[in-house]
Amino acid sequence: MKHKETTWGWMLAVDFFFAGMGGAMIALAGISYLFFGDALTATIGNFIGPIFVAMGAGFLVLELGRPLQAWRVFMNPKAILTFGAWNMTLAIGFGFVFASFRIASLPWAGWVWAQQITAVSSIITGLIVATYPGVLLGRHNARPFWTGPGIVSLFLLSSLLTGLAAHDLANSLFANTTNFSKLLAGLLVLQVVLWGLYIYMKCTGTTNREATIAQQWVNGDFAVGFWAILLGLGSLVPLIIYLLPSNPIMTLAGILVLLGGAWMRWMVVKSGEYRTWLPGEEFYLSRLPRGDEEFLKALK
């Protein structure tokens, strides 16, 4: 029995991952269409974007205590979650519509003005979906690891990175091109730098409680995940692969980037469990039963 004031579960991290990635994919598809001609992303990639966002939404619903009542999350216009939900819905819609312009057999395939409007809408809603988890978390004053604008850039960056990598994977798998290696490499460098900065700033940060949890990333519970998985496997290894002049394991790099992104979200969500403890609270919680005690099972 844990005191029931825990955090969001792994499904929320998965939601953030898919939604962020999908959102970025939708935005990137729009961007590549508007600014670089249509060739940079594969059709499949364009479709996968909204599918990912929808998958994210699915996980979000599953994470709910009462999934069948999910429609209710659209009801409070003042809540950022409600805004997020509406935006996600729009992004999925625009994403699909935008992707559909590639299907020549559809009657609207040639409506350029419509495609342009959807592209713009996709870019806006997609970017919001990509940024939104960071904004959501950053507003939590009570969760010292999240608090502040820093987390927004990290999530946006990671969304772009994973979205780009996903497009890249789609390209290489379905269109046999890889257009984004250099860009990905650049973003990976940025990811390493930004995370380094973020943790450093939290450690030396304004409040004790931020330092306490950030310390867990440096040399505590989250250290292996941070150094080895997020920075190592998820950033440096793919960075090296992307920088190799020509290489056969580009796919692996993409997968690693995705892995790193998912893992990062899991660790960030998990770090939210470190609330700002009230006086004496940690000791109190440590004395409560864990939940597997014999007395809880045997006694009525």
Binding site: H3, E5, T7, W8, L64, G65, L81, H140, A142, R275
Partner: peptide, 15 residues
């Protein structure tokens, strides 16, 4: 009305 999204749980600084 509650769907158990836990947004409030995370938002509350006081557990």
């Amino acid at each position: 009305k509650c769907v158990g999204c836990k947004a409030c749980v995370m938002a509350c600084p006081y557990g």
